[in-house]
Design a protein around this nucleic acid. Sequence first.
DNA 1: CACATACTTTAGAATAATTATAAAGTAGTT
DNA 2: AACTACTTTATAATTATTCTAAAGTATGTG
Lengths: 137, 137
Amino acid sequence: MNNKNKIFIDKLRSSGLRPTNQRVEISKFLFNRKKTFHFTVEELKNSMNLKRSKKISTATFYNTVHALKSAGHLKEFSLENNTSYYDTNITSHHHFFDNGKVIDIKSDKITFKKLPDAPKGKKIKNVEVVIRLENNN
Amino acid sequence: MNNKNKIFIDKLRSSGLRPTNQRVEISKFLFNRKKTFHFTVEELKNSMNLKRSKKISTATFYNTVHALKSAGHLKEFSLENNTSYYDTNITSHHHFFDNGKVIDIKSDKITFKKLPDAPKGKKIKNVEVVIRLENNN
DNA sequence: CACATACTTTAGAATAATTATAAAGTAGTT
DNA sequence: AACTACTTTATAATTATTCTAAAGTATGTG
């Protein structure tokens, strides 16, 4: 809860969450890294709880991740296996999918020559590209 | 099982499935239509079983849809709600997502100016674009 | 700084989508 | 017609997620 955690606490506060110990640890675990992080709630829970004597409950992981996502600190996406994936990279970007593995593609690596207009009464919120990979031969 | 069902039976056979009555009915329900069809297995089951006295079991719907998908007669995709959606349009194409509603976008409506290379050892299997919509104001 | 109060955490139950099981039925071959 | 392997089905099991309600804690107020 001290000063060096301010940035992680701010993410919680701006998500409408009080900075409890559990939440601060989750926020730190998610955002205290250089590279972007892709995860499911189950994966997050397992990797955090593995090293803890006092486990954080499943519900707290779900609640916290949802609030962070609703506030825009996490991005959600889906693969074809009925679980929600989250991405700490919230800038507009795209993904390679390679047998369940996810790799970010920077937004400027993909540009369009042609895009359809939104149906009337609607506008485009975002455009997401998924490039599926397979082995070379 | 007669001649007019040949096309639906062929889809089953080419998926490695014997053309049983249940499967032929499912195949017909899916492919005997002009417009492309988006559905979840649960929706398919409900709409088919509603008008039937003798219901087809859940497992048969899942098995049949999976086999048709593996054989390439259906396309699978995911929204952010942990259910698998299927599309009878298997040609390469894209989607608008508008609050859970799915609308096809013909392949030629989207073209790229720039696309990234696949990582080494990999090649691109397909490129899928999702355009999320929101209301105009 | 103690208190009250509203927000949190937690374990466990509930739900939803999907998959597994194993007994009874059927297609396709001989 | 009979046999065998594949199917169907009801039901149980599993997985991801959400709900619930009791016990715990952050925070503003005095």
